[in-house]
Design a binder for these strands. Structure first.
Lengths: 200, 200
DNA sequence: GGCTTGACTACACGATCGTGTAGTAGTTTG
DNA sequence: CAAACTACTACACGATCGTGTAGTCAAGCC
C-alpha cells in the first residue's frame, strides 16, 4: 500500500520529489528549490539532508536501483522476459523507471550498472530457455535495450497508436505488438548467414 | 565531403554547435554562451540570428529533421528496415540523431513528427514485405522504437559488450545481434494466441 | 558623397541557480 | 538543569542564466 505523503519523513519526501522531478525534467531542469517546494520543505533542508545536488542525485540513484530490484523481486512469479517489463506500469516503479532512464542518459554509473545487471539476467534466461544465438551477449544486450525502448518512447508510441500506452489497455496493446515482433521471423537463418558473409 | 568549419556561415556554425551541444548535454544543459563559444562567435550573435533560445531550438528541430530525411534518402539503396538504421553511424547524421532523440524526450513536436513518419514508413514496409501482424500499426510502432533503442542506450550496450558500438566493428556486432532477435522466434503463434486469451 | 542595412560585439539587466551562514525549536543526553 | 544534537528555516553570496541595449564596421544603394 502506498502511504500518504504526510506519513513519510521529510528526507524521504525530498528524495521522492527529486526522483519525480529529475525523471520528468532531467537533472539540469529540476532545481533544488523546485524539489524542496514539491516536497513541502525549505530548500535549505534539502542541503541539510543531502549536502549537494550531486549527492542528492547519487542518493536517488542508489534508492531507485534498490527499490527497483526490490519491486522486481516481488513480481517475478510470471516473469518471462520476452515482452514488456510489467514493472513499467507499476505505480511505484513508473517514476523510478523514468528517473533511471534519465540518469542513464546523463551517464550515471549506478543506472548503467542496473542496465548491465539486466543484460546478465537476459543472458541467463536465454540459456535456461534453450535459446542459442551466435552472439549470446550481444543478443542479450539488444533485448535489454529493446525492453526499455517502448518505455523511453512511450509518448511517441502513444501518439502513433492514438492510445495512451501507460494505461492498462494501451499497455496490453503495445505488449502484444512487441510479442509479435518476437514471433514473426523477419529474416530466415539463411538470410542472416548471407549477410554475415557479406560483411567479412 | 565535409567542409571545414571556417567555410560555413556564422549562422550555420551556431546551428551546428547548438545541435551538437543540445544533443550531448540536453537543452537545459547547454547555454547560449556555451553554444556561442563552440561556434566561435559572441553570444549576442546567437540572439541576433535566432531571437531566443526556444527559437534556436525550433530552428535546430527543423534543420535536423530536414537534413536527416535528406541523408536518409541518399542511402535508401539497400535499406531493408529490419536492422539498425545505417543512418546511425553516418558522421553527419550521428549528432543529428543524438539531438533528435533528446528533443523527443523533451517533448518536441517536430521530433515526435519524425518518429511518426518513421512508423508510417515501417507500416508500409510490412505491407510490401508481406508481413501481416494482427496489429499492424502497433507492430510498426514497436519496430520504430526498437530501431532507436540501441542508439539511445549505445553507452550502456557498449559497456555490456566491452566494445564501442559506434565504431564499425561494434556496430556490425550489435547489428547482427539485433538481426538475431528478428530471426529467432521467442514465442510460437500458438503461445501468443494463448496469452491474448488470458488478458481478455 | 550620404544613408541604410545586416552581421557582429560589448556590456549591463534582473532572475535564478547551487551553495554558504546564522539561527530557532524540540528532543536527547550527561 | 545545562549542554549537545538534530531537524528545520530564513536569508544572503557569487556565479550563471536568458535577454535587452547600444554601438561598431563593412557592404550595397540612392
Amino acid at each position: 500500500m502506498e502511504r500518504p505523503a504526510d506519513d513519510l519523513t521529510a528526507r524521504a519526501r525530498i528524495r521522492d520529489a527529486a526522483i519525480r522531478l529529475f525523471g520528468e525534467r532531467g537533472i539540469e531542469g529540476a532545481s533544488i528549490r523546485d524539489i524542496a517546494a514539491e516536497a513541502g520543505v525549505s530548500s535549505g533542508l534539502v542541503r541539510h539532508h543531502f549536502g549537494s545536488k550531486e549527492s542528492l542525485r547519487e542518493a536517488c540513484d542508489r534508492y531507485a536501483k534498490e527499490r527497483m530490484l526490490q519491486i522486481g523481486a516481488e513480481l517475478t512469479q510470471d516473469h518471462d522476459l520476452t515482452g514488456l517489463d510489467p514493472l513499467a506500469l507499476h505505480p511505484v516503479a513508473f517514476p523510478l523507471q523514468l528517473y533511471i532512464v534519465r540518469s542513464m542518459m546523463d551517464g550515471s554509473e549506478t543506472a548503467t550498472a542496473l542496465f548491465l545487471e539486466g543484460v546478465d539476467a537476459v543472458e541467463e534466461w536465454t540459456t535456461s530457455y534453450g535459446i542459442n544465438p551466435k552472439d549470446r551477449r550481444g543478443y542479450a544486450a539488444a533485448l535489454a535495450a529493446i525492453k526499455l525502448s517502448v518505455f523511453v518512447f512511450r509518448d511517441q508510441v502513444s501518439k502513433a497508436l492514438g492510445e495512451d500506452i501507460t494505461t492498462l489497455a494501451g499497455y496490453n496493446r503495445i505488449g502484444q505488438a512487441l510479442m509479435e515482433v518476437f514471433t514473426i521471423p523477419l529474416l530466415t537463418q539463411e538470410q542472416l548467414d548471407n549477410m554475415r558473409k557479406q560483411e567479412k
